[in-house]
């Protein structure tokens, strides 16, 4: 059983934005700026930050809304602890 709803992945599934109660948290200190998540994100809600982290990378950040909670970014991210996806917003 896949935890990803692949239907969501194909096209921007969320043109209206904010319909989904989901969000993504990115720990900027752990991001190595490989940009695989940005490339994979269908609703295109991730961007590169202008700040630098301690490793010298510009970490990726969430633009703040539009996340569908599909989890693709989590699975393509090679760092274990960088991305955390809340599929429903009720989780604090």
């Amino acid at each position: 059983m896949s935890e990803l709803n692949l239907e969501m992945v194909k096209e921007d599934p969320n043109p209206a934005r904010k319909k989904h109660n989901a969000r993504v948290e990115i720990d900027g200190a752990l991001c190595k700026e490989c940009l695989l998540c940005i490339e994979a994100c269908a609703p295109d809600v991730l961007k590169v930050s202008e700040t630098l982290n301690k490793m010298g990378y510009h970490p990726v950040e969430y633009i703040g809304d539009g996340c569908t909670g599909c989890g693709v970014c989590f699975y393509v991210c090679p760092e274990p602890g960088t991305i955390k996806v809340y599929k429903k917003i009720k989780a604090a």
């Binding site: 190595k32 301690k54 090679p78 274990p80 602890g81 996806v85 599929k87 989780a91």
Partner: peptide, 30 residues
């Protein structure tokens, strides 16, 4: 799962890793 996060089968802090950064892997970006 409702939350996708670092699996518990990883150490929370990578104590065995040398250097001061014990939260990220030693692998290259990507």
């Amino acid at each position: 799962k409702d939350i996708l996060e670092k699996p518990e089968s990883f150490y929370e802090i990578f104590e065995r890793k040398s250097g001061s950064n014990k939260l990220t892997t030693h692998y290259c970006p990507g």
